[in-house]
């Protein structure tokens, strides 16, 4: 099944001509998103958003009043959006059913992940929604430059940059006529990133390398780590750390043997609320690194260079910049 997913998805890079930041939206507009073009005569109502990252972007744009439902949550909503979230029905904690989404009579369905709505979408395909005149919007950071039919969590075709995220914010801002908010949000994210990168540069991390460990199906099993092209790799590159993982998959499974031999300067482990696998708990990850006969011999472990970052900050989302800031802060503390 993993091997059979060799079909290559054609992914559209076309930028909608009307994407311009600032000002107000002149409806009707047409928006092209990953090979699909939809027309909006006014800001859509009864929007259903699947995936916490996409949902929080809508809240940040102040589009909460346009929304009728959310699904697929990984953690608590960010505190600043608690009020907005309280007024929107949660259809499902995980994947919602097609009919539950359609039942909201949505003017737009947004999704953070193509595996929710897309060629092999668990909720449905984009064609299914289009047949019912429901436009769909997939965050460009997941559907552009990434083939979600190869590898378990998709495979990057090129290097991830936050421009995909900014493009998504910009297009959503245009659709909801919130272009000022969108522009401010993007400017803020860019500024914070720049600052983090500058601080990191001052730390003089020359030649330092790292591995981002998300989780493992079982503690001794091969771990899920960040691939060389995804958002985590972008974070590492921005800060000036070299990723020791070679795979282009988003979250490849790589053997401890390979990781130990690569002997990275830092091991970055994810903290999350989820408790599905024992390794979801960052304390268990720490314990493993320190007790396994091989990983305990790694330089990063022997010298206490293990950093902890929130799992959401390892993905392309509003939280990514927080992850960057936290990492730089931790690195600075260790340098003292």
């Amino acid at each position: 099944m993993l091997i059979s997913r060799l079909a290559v998805a054609a992914v559209g890079f076309a930028l909608s001509a009307s994407t311009a930041l600032g000002g107000s939206t002149a409806y009707p507009i047409s928006v092209t998103n990953c090979g699909f073009t939809f027309e909006f005569k006014k800001a859509p109502q009864n929007v259903v958003s699947i995936g916490q990252g996409a949902t929080e972007i809508l809240y940040a744009l102040g589009a909460g009043d346009n929304m009728a439902g959310t699904a697929l949550w990984f953690a608590k909503v960010l505190p600043e959006y608690e009020a907005a979230n309280a007024n929107v029905a949660r259809i499902a904690d995980n994947a919602p059913s097609f009919e539950a989404v359609i039942g909201k009579k949505p003017g737009l369905v947004t999704t953070q992940f193509e595996w929710m709505i897309g060629k092999q979408g668990v909720v449905g395909t984009r064609e299914q929604f289009r047949d019912l005149n429901v436009p769909t919007y997939i965050m460009p950071d997941d559907c552009e430059g990434k083939d979600n039919l190869v590898g378990a969590d998709g495979t990057r075709k090129g290097v991830y940059t936050p421009d995909f995220l900014y493009k998504g914010i910009g297009q959503l801002a245009e659709i909801f006529d919130r272009q000022d908010k969108g522009a401010n949000l993007i400017a803020d994210l860019k500024a914070r990133q720049k600052k983090a990168a500058e601080q990191a540069k001052a730390l003089d991390l020359k030649g330092a390398s790292a591995v981002f460990w998300f989780s493992s199906a079982d503690l001794d099993l091969d771990p899920y780590v960040a691939g060389k092209l995804g958002p985590s790799a972008y974070i590492m590159k921005t800060i000036g750390l070299k990723n020791v993982i070679e795979s282009a998959e988003e979250w490849p499974t790589v053997g401890w043997e390979t990781i130990a031999k690569a002997n990275p300067t830092y091991v970055v482990i994810a903290r999350m609320d989820r408790r599905r696998f024992p390794a979801d708990d960052f304390q268990k990850k720490l314990e493993y690194l320190k007790t396994d006969p091989v990983t305990s011999q790694m330089d990063a472990v022997k010298n206490g260079r293990i950093l902890i970052v929130d799992a959401d900050a390892m993905q392309s989302s509003l939280r990514m910049v927080q992850g960057m800031e936290k990492l730089v802060k931790d690195l600075a503390e260790r340098k003292k």
Binding site: N94, A217, L219, D220, L221, R276, F277
Partner: peptide
């Protein structure tokens, strides 16, 4: 009922046999 892609793959990996966790 309840899987998302990462869990489904954790299980997939295991269902097809996996010796990586052996100590």
């Amino acid at each position: 009922r309840s899987a998302n892609s990462e869990q489904a793959r954790g299980i997939m990996f295991w269902l097809l046999g996996n010796l990586s966790g052996v100590r």
